[in-house]
Design a protein around this nucleic acid. Structure first.
Lengths: 334, 334
DNA sequence: TTGTAGGCGTTATCAT
DNA sequence: ATGATAACGCCTACAA
């Protein structure tokens, strides 16, 4: 009997099984932007881990469209899903947050990566932004910089210094203070969008100061890359005229020129903790912080004299890390 | 009665409905790399479109792991899914292809974006690579270049010129011939991986020719960006010493310096056609080609003199590269 | 060990 | 019109 079943290619229907068990075999992922390589990696790693546990993942990504996000959430709940993973640190609209709090209190597992659901103890995992700010600032300080700017994107100045990245910003300030430097508010800039023109605006404003910065700590690799693009376009040298540090360790950062010094979040840990939060909400409430790692490349440290001019700037020897070549990207359409 | 149901927040269960209707409300997406921004965009756009039709999408992305891919496919089929979308142009392993052909013949809708299932008439949509090669080559030729290299990544030379990107490569050659130039095999390079060192190897080999190329057509934006990174590291100017054109229109291409000239595939059309193929397999068998668009930015055409140094390079002017060379960016500092 | 009954949430069908 | 019932594919539970 079983042999015939196997020969006929019989497969149990997970959806029906879930129906019987009163439990959906699906996780919903509410994401702000799968287009962002960092979150794409989070989604991919999480999906692989969840699949190993027998869960399929339905990804809903509507970018910044808040009304669409609300519809996405209802769509997921109607499927239904066993739990919802929140990915991303942008603020969600109040109705969505309220709905999330509601379903969480009603017993649906919810977990957040780089985010939270206000008013709840939803399990959430985030990189230790205090550490991010400290590592970046200390690295630039140790490279000899005294005037270190901080540039972020997307939120108003007020939000940036009070909101989700407050810890990163405060650590930047605290580390400066610890080094005996007085934080200068004029060195803190916010780009309104990720674009060349916004980068040029921020850069020009920084350079117009009587004491312009010699280094910049960018809140994300993309901000760093965009600033570097603007700086090179303005005739500046990087890192000689403007040392730059980003955050995220995007793959492209090791390919462009100069290669990008960055701070890498441990994505493996983050998705594992989030999955645990979804599977065992009871034991994993509240926030868990994970520690990032500094990756020194060419955008923050100039090549040593003997190597200069011969090839691309080499990373600082102390913490040099040769990234393994990425495997073939399997690209190009048909 | 209905009012009470609404007040209690009743939602129909799509999975149970599917069970009854004998049809799953889920599409499976088999993807090579959601980490690649181009495919991430494909996945996102497709998901939004499918959701509007009431279908959820389960994404399975195991990168290059072929055995995992086979497991992913079985996982999707067991869910079960209503259909499977294939995303990406890398060759799939024979067992996976055979399984796909089998389920397709058994009636499960299958569609492919930038790929195919050998031995079947599965609906597939791809960018017209013949046009891609022609547009890129013609653009560089019209910018005054006679020695145009072609650089791709990941496959052996033989595969690259015989396999999935044959059309692109042939069009490059054909366009050169049409312009009265003789294609030079030494100008065709393949990087074994997307890395700085591989880019330097390719670049050095090209530059060591007695007549080195003055322009390069890169098979993908990432190849182009990596080559530009290597070229700038070698002290070359882009586009003056090496004009560069990529393919994909990745967002980062408009942010780095120099901004990247690229050829943009119409993703909206591609996902719409793929969804149609999944919903109505009968009427949409076989291949459909879509047309890409050239986006001229700074990496292929130098800024005109009057604008030079002021802002990002302006688009096309035939004589642009005959203009007197600009100062090296690394020396211009204000 | 093998068989059978019931029910998960939905919808189609049939009876009222 | 409204209401009852069966069945989708699976699993659990109890009976043989």
């Amino acid at each position: 009997v079983r042999r015939v079943a196997a020969e006929l290619g019989y497969r149990p229907n997970r959806l029906a099984r879930g129906l019987k068990r009163g439990q959906s075999p699906i996780f919903g992922i509410l994401d702000f932007s799968i287009l962002h390589p960092f979150y794409a990696r989070v989604v991919r790693e999480f999906e692989i881990l969840a699949r190993a546990q027998g869960f399929a993942c339905v990804v809903c990504d509507n970018g910044l469209d808040e009304s669409a996000e609300s519809a996405s959430l209802e769509f997921l709940l109607e499927l239904p899903v066993h739990g919802v993973l929140l990915v991303g640190d942008r603020r969600r609209s109040a109705p969505v947050n309220e709905r999330l709090a509601e379903v969480w209190r009603a017993g649906t597992p919810v977990a957040a990566i780089s985010g939270a659901v206000p008013g709840t103890d939803v399990p959430r995992v985030a990189v230790d932004n205090q550490l991010v700010g400290q590592i970046a600032t200390r690295h630039l300080r140790e490279a000899g910089h005294a005037r270190i700017a901080y540039v972020t994107v997307g939120l108003s100045d007020e939000e940036s210094t009070a909101g989700y990245m407050a810890a990163r910003w405060r650590a930047y300030q605290a580390e400066l203070a610890r080094q005996g430097l007085r934080p200068d508010p004029r060195l803190v800039m916010t780009m309104n969008a990720l674009s060349r023109s916004e980068a040029e605006r921020a850069l020009d404003q920084l350079l117009s100061l009587t004491e312009p910065p010699t280094a910049v700590f960018a809140s994300h690799d993309e901000v760093a890359l965009t600033l570097i693009g603007a700086a090179l376009g303005r005739g500046l040298r990087v890192p000689e005229d403007l040392a730059t540090v980003g955050v995220d360790d995007l793959p492209i950062g090791s390919l462009v020129w100069p290669t990008l010094t960055t701070i890498a979040p441990p994505i493996d840990q983050m998705v594992a903790l989030a999955l645990e939060g979804l599977l065992h909400p009871e034991g994993t409430r509240g926030e868990r912080l994970v520690e990032p790692a500094l990756i020194v490349r060419g955008s923050s440290v100039a090549p040593t004299p003997e190597r200069a001019g011969r090839r691309a700037p080499a990373p600082a020897r102390a913490a040099a890390r040769e990234d393994p070549p990425r495997r073939r990207p399997s690209r190009a359409r048909g």
